[in-house]
Design a binder for these strands. Structure first.
Lengths: 355, 355
DNA sequence: CTGTTAGCGCCTTCAG
DNA sequence: CTGAAGGCGCTAACAG
């Protein structure tokens, strides 16, 4: 059970295979200061003369000293660990998020643990509660659709743990990061309108995601601004999955008259719509234009390449994490940051076919 | 800096908003036993009468007691944390791995931290070394290509930290999980041969991945068994990416005479090959058959759907993690487990075209 | 600006 | 089978 690298204080003169990890006490002795001063230097606290600071740093380097996270955690009442809570989003999206979060964490010597959370499951809130009790976490990052679960957010507020939301539906009073999805979709659909499209279908996102609402709202705004009537028949449900896009695509493309363009609420579904078009012998974009949202890799891997909205997911995750770390450092810090989007016009959209 | 939920030992009679987390001492008092006995029960150690055990468990439940991981870690010299080391694999693959690892971890009350490692970077081994010093990790999970970096593996051995490998090239003396990729590819290529193909191209995997070797070897074995000559011209490099598949596909399909079938070392590259075929006006599978490896989602999302090898990545990750946890529990435990594969025959492969 | 003194909450040893 | 004492390595509070 015990690794044995333990009792070897100073009774072993030979350069044994186990260099007996230096402790803060050793560093203090080597630098000729007190433990607390070493601690101050390590944590970049003020109140240490520059010369002393340097001497301590040298001793740290010489002894190859690394503070023990467990001890730090126990004494300092924090873990240097944040958790990424997620619920079954697309792998591409989640990996972008992971990369962004980890990047930000590394810079601040934080670790990130992955924590799946089934937001529809009955005991979801309790499960998160147990997690918070069972692991010393300094903060949480939430991804959609967890960002839109009021029960969960309320509980987290109640427990007082700092958390950041990536792309939540409600932004007020939260910290994290958002992108103006309404405006982005609005521009995208306006682009379709400019190409001459008048019957524009929409495959909605997963009903649990606030993003689905924003995207639908953007679609409606664009129609209204273009003086087009909102036709409920042209709006069909989806779940952000390829298969749901395929099914909804079949449905939309069977309507009479057929829509000449379809905006799917994400790229996976847009790919499904394109497959539906292909099944029905419809050419994209000659007979039907298709566009998506997110600019995931699939957008470039399908043919023709997909017109979509570029969302800087990785940067968003990084920014959200920085906000979280700020809030961990001092409660009250951290805010909701807005990120820019960019239309990616590619080959899946083109002029509306003549009547 | 201080949350304030701290000093409230027992001087606050009202049911305040901060229930002052129970400590092991409280549980001991409630159960009428010593702290050590509680500890024994919590860690499932022997030497406690069944009745006592029950009483303790009741007290734990009543007080909603959760041991503090930091304290446990400090005193017990372990962290209940493992890290997943990865280097830029495909998001789909990695997320499957994450899911499997997390599943196995949850069951054993372990947490998993994500740790990207740039295996080509100069200071890679040192970076991992620093990681091991800076975070108390009980063990590591390695994914390809880290599993094939001798420098890294040697250092880990030297530090004596337990680790499990997922799909390493060399299996002897390691713990983890593998799949017989050689045999799988052999069967896949034999399937092409059975369809009448005689000129079969191969897009290789990333040169740093041992899997690329196994897959090439399987290809060669299948050719040999079929009495076909190995033609180096038909084997082109790749990097496991869509783009590399596209490029290599163009190259292979420009050869005269053209191969009638192409085995790409993974699905992403196979999708690239199919795109190359489509660019050149070649129909799949009528004029050229294409197959891949992994059975990632893209295999079903492209048209026609891809013939490939199903690899139970999630289960593999889970099994590897269980082996790791066993090795953590007692050094010497844990082994290399072989997992089954299954051919997925779909629409991208068909009879060889007549000459 | 710096040092001293007490724990953080648990586990380990050794005694009963 | 059970308990009491001590320490894991660090930081918070308070002195100086």
């Amino acid at each position: 059970m015990n690794a044995g690298a333990h009792d070897g204080r100073q009774q072993d003169p030979r350069p044994g295979p186990v260099p007996a990890r230096a402790r803060i006490e050793d560093v203090a002795a080597a630098a000729g200061v007190s433990m607390k001063t070493v601690s101050r230097v390590l944590n970049n606290e003020p109140g240490v003369r520059e010369a002393t600071r340097l001497r301590v740093r040298e001793a740290v380097a010489a002894l190859n000293y690394r503070p023990d996270p467990s001890a730090r955690s126990l004494a300092g009442n924090r873990s240097y660990l944040v958790a990424l809570l997620y619920d079954n989003p697309s792998p591409n999206y989640l990996m972008e998020v992971v990369t962004g979060v980890v990047d930000a964490c590394e810079a601040h010597h934080y670790g990130m643990v992955m924590q799946p959370v089934a937001h529809r499951a009955p005991g979801c809130v309790e499960a998160v509660d147990a997690l918070l009790s069972g692991a010393r976490l300094d903060g949480l990052i939430l991804t959609p659709p967890l960002t839109d679960s009021d029960a969960l957010l309320d509980r987290l507020d109640q427990r007082g743990i700092p958390f950041a939301c990536i792309s939540p539906y409600k932004r007020e009073g939260r910290i994290g990061v958002t992108l103006d999805e309404h405006d982005a979709v609005c521009e995208l659909v306006a682009h379709l309108v400019a190409l001459g499209h008048r019957r524009i279908g929409h495959v909605r996102g997963h009903p649990d995601h606030g993003a689905s609402e924003w995207r639908l709202a953007g679609y409606r705004t664009a129609l209204r601004r273009a003086g087009l009537r909102y036709d409920p028949e042209l709006v069909v449900p989806g779940e952000f999955s390829f298969d749901s896009g395929l099914e909804s695509g079949r449905r939309l493309l069977s309507l009479q008259p057929r829509p000449t363009a379809i905006f799917a609420a994400n790229d996976d579904m847009a790919a499904g719509v394109m497959r539906a078009a292909s099944e029905m012998g419809l050419r994209v974009p000659a007979e039907v234009s298709v566009c998506g949202f997110d600019n995931t890799p699939i957008a470039k891997h399908i043919f023709p390449q997909l017109t979509t909205v570029q969302q800087p997911t990785r940067d968003m995750a990084q920014v959200a994490t920085m906000q979280l770390l700020a809030a961990i450092r001092d409660r009250g810090a951290g805010s909701m940051v807005h990120m820019p989007y960019a239309l990616q016009l590619r080959d899946s959209t083109g002029p509306a076919p003549p009547d």
